[in-house]
Design a protein around this nucleic acid. Sequence first.
DNA 1: TGCAATCGAGTTGTGCACAACTCTCTTCTG
DNA 2: CAGAAGAGAGTTGTGCACAACTCGATTGCA
Lengths: 158, 158
Amino acid sequence: MVKSTTNEHGEDLLQLDTQICFALHATSRSFGGVYRQVLRDTGLTYPQYLAMMALWEHGEMPVKRLGELLRLDTGTLSPLLKRLDTAGLVKRDRSPHDERSVIVGLTAAGRELRAQAEQIPLKILAATGLEPEELIQLRTTLNRLTDALDSAAESLQD
Amino acid sequence: MVKSTTNEHGEDLLQLDTQICFALHATSRSFGGVYRQVLRDTGLTYPQYLAMMALWEHGEMPVKRLGELLRLDTGTLSPLLKRLDTAGLVKRDRSPHDERSVIVGLTAAGRELRAQAEQIPLKILAATGLEPEELIQLRTTLNRLTDALDSAAESLQD
DNA sequence: TGCAATCGAGTTGTGCACAACTCTCTTCTG
DNA sequence: CAGAAGAGAGTTGTGCACAACTCGATTGCA
């Protein structure tokens, strides 16, 4: 049995689907543009900012754990952390307990940057122009969507 | 006057904001993962698929117009089209009316690929696991969000 | 205990996104 | 009509995302 691709509003879901995905792609890039502006004087990119956020909140942790929090693999994270290291914001040291593991921690400069970054979320919040209720619902929908997509991708592996 | 950063549900909006943006980022990448699976035997990446979609729907058009449809600048589009050209799916010719303009059109192979790509939207739709109503609302919210972010980014230029 | 399997980081290669630039062609204006 | 200004495409350089790989450390199990 094949589901109809047109709903009661007369919208073609096949078309709609591509628009959803395209809209998401566009929104993601627009967010990137706003963050680029807001982060300009910190010298951070958005993914670097996310990494710093995680370290500000949780303190030092292994690269592995940071990758889980940010959902990034080492191919992305290693060079990113190298750049943060070069910028003097983080330090990386082998764990004495497990020589495979590298512990990422903040330097003094990295901790100091936190004060400068404090107003960033408010600026971003203002830029969204959405009401809190809408943001909450959007987040809920996105999280469900991410879970569904991840498990779909997994079941498509074969 | 400073707005409260905590709403009536006791959620910290500063935290929420970062979660929204992070959630969006995560969803965008999860979509990427599903498309990677689904597009595997076409040999296309997701942005390449978007470009092909635009050409299947609208026929040949200048690079400029394609960039507007996909919201991509030439720095992204030129090499992407070069790869599609190398793959034999599109052709690029200078416009006879305006030597600055390049017209992108489909080759026979590019047109044939459409049949193979026909079931892709349905697969993606299934992978989202969302009801049509939710998709429609999500699209609406995302479009508003994108507009707000774009105009915010513009006003932050200076 | 010894060795195979696994794990954690890092590297390499490809492609996307974007800023800043060049080059050519067109258009506008004095 | 000439030269300046602008438009359209492409290039260069940086950084992110991800697959596939290497390498050394650890773990597990025969």
